[in-house]
Design a protein around this nucleic acid. Structure first.
Length: 217
DNA sequence: ATAATGATTTTCT
DNA sequence: GAAAATCATTATA
C-alpha cells in the first residue's frame, strides 16, 4: 500500500478524501484493548462554506480541532451523551474533516461488545452510527486532537491508527447526510459516502425536529 | 418496514 | 433558552 500516498490523500478536501476512507482500517489502543474497524460509511464536512459543519459560524473552543493538521482526530460530545469522531484533512486552517459513521469490527470484538453493552442487536449493526462507532472504539474527548498513526494503534505510540486507505476506491454510493438539520442536510449536500451491500451501514434518518417544550408550572 | 419520542448536557445565542 | 453531525425504545403498518 502506498505509504507516501497517505499524506497526499489526507491533504485532500473532505469530499475527495471520503471515498478513500471507505474500506480503510481505524484502530484504537485504549484501556489496554486493541480494536480495529473497517470503515463502511463516512460523511464529509467542508468547513466554513458548509452549513452542516460545526465550523460554519467560525472557530470556537469546541470546534478548534477541525482547523488542525491533516491526520488528526476531531472528537466532539453531543446530545448530552454521545461522542463522534472525525478524521481531519485538507490544509491546516480549512476546517475540512470526515465523520466516521459506521464500520465492521475486524479485531477486538469482545471489547466492542463490552463497551456497547447491547448483545441484543445483530453483530453487524454494532457500529452502525457515528456515536456507536466512537463508543466501540472507546473514543472520548480525551482523544480529541490526537494523531492517527500511520499503521495500527499500539503503545507506546499514538492510541489511534489509520491505515489501508484505498488508493483507488471501489464502487461506492453517495447521498444526503444523515441527521443534519437545516440547509446542510438537503440533497444539495450529497456528502455521505458508503459501501453498497454492507450490512454494517447505518440506516438513513432525517434530522429529528425538537419537540416543543410545554409551559413551566 | 418507517415514525415518533425521551434521554441528557455542553455550547452558543 | 434552544439546539445539537444521536440512540434506544415504543408504536403503528
Amino acid at each position: 500500500m502506498g505509504t507516501g500516498n497517505r499524506e497526499e490523500l489526507l491533504a485532500l478536501p473532505s469530499m475527495q478524501l471520503a471515498p478513500h476512507l471507505l474500506g480503510a482500517h481505524v484502530s484504537s489502543f485504549i484501556d489496554g484493548q486493541l480494536v480495529i474497524v473497517r470503515l463502511t460509511e463516512v460523511e464529509a464536512y467542508d468547513g466554513s462554506m458548509d452549513p452542516g459543519s460545526h465550523a460554519y459560524r467560525g472557530k470556537t473552543a469546541r470546534n478548534a480541532g477541525l482547523f488542525g493538521a491533516a491526520g488528526t482526530a476531531y472528537v466532539y460530545f453531543t446530545y448530552g451523551m454521545h461522542h463522534c469522531a472525525n478524521v481531519v484533512c485538507g490544509s491546516e486552517g480549512t476546517a475540512s474533516a470526515v465523520l466516521m459513521r459506521a464500520g465492521e469490527v475486524l479485531t477486538g470484538l469482545e471489547t466492542v461488545l463490552a463497551r456497547r453493552g447491547h448483545p441484543r442487536a445483530p453483530e453487524t449493526k454494532l457500529l452502525a452510527g457515528p456515536a456507536r462507532l466512537a463508543q466501540g472504539l472507546g473514543l472520548t474527548l480525551a482523544n480529541n486532537l490526537a494523531s492517527y498513526a500511520n499503521g495500527v494503534a499500539a503503545p507506546p505510540g499514538p492510541a489511534l491508527g489509520l491505515e489501508n486507505l484505498t488508493g483507488s476506491p471501489a464502487s461506492y454510493l453517495v447521498g444526503p447526510r444523515t441527521g443534519v438539520a437545516g440547509p446542510g442536510g438537503t440533497e444539495e449536500y450529497p456528502y455521505r459516502f458508503w459501501l453498497p451491500g454492507e450490512p454494517s451501514v447505518s440506516t438513513y434518518r432525517k434530522a429529528a425536529p425538537r419537540k416543543a417544550r410545554g409551559f413551566e408550572v
